[in-house]
Nucleic acid binder design. Structure first.
Lengths: 333, 333
DNA sequence: GGCGATATCTTTCAGGGTTACCATTTGATT
DNA sequence: AATCAAATGGTAACCCTGAAAGATATCGCC
């Protein structure tokens, strides 16, 4: 293992001079030494020890990416794309991303402190103890998709409420008056709640309020679905607050002999890559995941560069993508 | 920031004693001191500095997970699931996963060395300079899906060749005599090549050799597809070496007015979660990604625990999952 | 009961590779 | 000769661990 000292010895200068060259403080070292040292570094294959560096400077160039839940969180393509994008951009900024799964915020705090982690991005539902996380870790934090009343939190999210409204209005426009809401991707997070609220609110406004029995949990029983779709006043359309749910729902409806969109319609949320390939292709509310990641990372680095920067709460827009999983009841008649 | 020293001072013992307690070497510390120290640690919220620890011990408890390609690699669900699972299990072993994207193996070497990374998992097509990577980094490495002639490499893969054979035999069994191979998920990696080889070989054996024009690149032109399916001897089935390809292919065929499976059949590979939800649901070659991840991580930790452990090359089995994207030509007639 | 021997704790010392801070040298400019 | 800037060096952290020596308690034995 080659160290600064070795390089210094070989170059006949002090460690300090080598350190300056390694760290690009060229203005403080003579031209000739820079060249000599660089060539020795190259020749010997010297790589700075980041452990030593971070011990000494209290800056590790590590960013933690923290995912709520367990391994299955990455099976959800939305998270995968987001994490992938975020980690890539972290690396692009010459930092190293550490990927953590967490449920317990104490554990997070431990991990963030133990390396001198310089910043963290949180994905998922840390709504409740978010303030605590912030307080316990005196480093820049960026949350994604968090709903919290706490001020002074930097968060990047989308207009989930509007997404719900869009879905409701679209379904009504297509003549669906009795509709249902199916599930959240794991628990009822703030995100799902907002989508539901927007959905519910728009329905009310349009005069078709959502009844309680039309709000279904993640994986509704076949029985329940059947009853809803076959009653005297059958549900003709479903809003799933995630494409993955929509997909599963379509599968289930299929199993009950209900064709989508002929027999009942489904609208999703996210517009994940597979949405255009499913059959029927999914009508869904689109959000720009890449942009979300980009903004989150940009904000994080801004805060790392300038710890005094004010917290920001960014809300990105969503839009409806019309495909073929919703039928027009007007045409049908 | 609380340090060992602070704890030691408060407890009235030396740093070393505290260090022992922190590191669980309880047999060397008196009962009373253990309790006292632990309570002080708890009270003060002491968290060991991993930078210092790794500097001192040359062991960072970091595992690098290295993904070939760029951010888009994580959009591919196969990679996402694998990475998710691997990182989770790394964390489970009380190590920290660092996620890197890489194309250039020199960059990897740099990064692995700069932290005292204790091991690495490589996903993707590092077939060519794999030996170099191994030589440059004197730490345990586990490759996933690598095909390399180099011995002494620990690799976990699946029987891609057999997968190709299974696909071929199944299509022939269903009466498809003129078939095509469509694409690899990005470049022609060893994995895709093996799948093709197995496919080709089985076809030959059965007396229906694969002609060159029936091996199509990733995203075949609409023109090309059209010609293949409408010629005098039309292609009736496609083998896509990845479900994602299969999905795209189905979309394209759809655009050309060719229904799957009525007009032509498609068989995929991987059995990703969406395969059962697409329409038609995908007949595909299944591999167990979770198991792959599990084995890779287990092997890695075995090698970290015992650096002398011999390299292993594990090949997992695959099987065909019959769904509805392949039609039976016998029935049709 | 006092001796050394053994076992059980505990401390001291010496790094590990880097950076921050301050001090020094050098050579050129007035 | 005095001044100054540029280039370089020395030293003390940073926090932890490993090895080995030091201190204390435990025990059998003459």
């Amino acid at each position: 293992m080659v160290t600064l000292k070795d390089i210094a010895a070989e170059a006949g200068v002090s460690v300090m001079t080598v350190s300056r060259v390694v760290n690009g403080q060229f203005s403080k070292v003579s031209e000739s030494n820079i060249k000599k040292i660089q060539s020795i570094i190259e020749k010997r294959g010297y790589v700075p020890s980041l452990s030593a560096r971070s011990l000494s400077s209290h800056a590790s160039r590590i960013i933690a990416v923290i995912l709520q839940g367990d391994a299955s969180a990455m099976e959800y393509p939305y998270n995968a794309v987001l994490v992938g994008q975020i980690c890539y951009m972290i690396q692009d900024n010459n930092y190293s991303p550490m990927l953590y799964y967490a449920n317990d915020y104490k554990d997070i705090t431990r991990r963030l402190r133990s390396w001198y982690v310089e910043g963290a991005v949180f994905l998922g539902m840390f709504d409740s103890n978010l303030r605590q996380i912030q307080a316990d870790n005196q480093i820049p934090l960026v949350f994604i998709d968090s709903y919290s009343s706490v001020r002074q939190i930097t968060n990047v999210g989308i207009d989930d409420y509007k997404g719900g409204e869009l879905a409701a209005r679209y379904l009504i426009e297509k003549g669906h008056h009795r509709v249902a809401f199916v599930g959240g991707y794991s628990q009822v997070s703030g995100v799902v709640r907002q989508r539901l609220n927007g959905f519910r609110h728009a329905l009310e406004q349009e005069g078709f309020p959502l009844t309680e029995e039309c709000i279904l949990s993640d994986v509704p029983e076949a029985e329940v679905l059947k009853k809803l779709c076959h009653g005297s006043e059958p549900v003709t359309a479903f809003f799933a607050p995630a494409d993955v749910n929509a997909l599963q729902l379509i599968g289930q409806l299929d199993g009950l002999g209900l064709r989508v969109p002929e027999d009942c319609s489904v609208i999703g949320f996210d517009d994940l890559f597979f949405a255009q390939y499913t059959s029927p292709s999914l009508t869904t509310i689109r959000q720009d995941i890449h942009r979300k990641a980009q903004i989150a990372v940009d904000l994080l680095f801004r805060h790392i560069g300038d710890p005094g920067a004010p917290a920001e709460n960014i809300t990105l827009d969503v839009q409806l993508v019309e495909r073929s999983s919703v039928c027009d009841l007007h045409e049908k008649r």
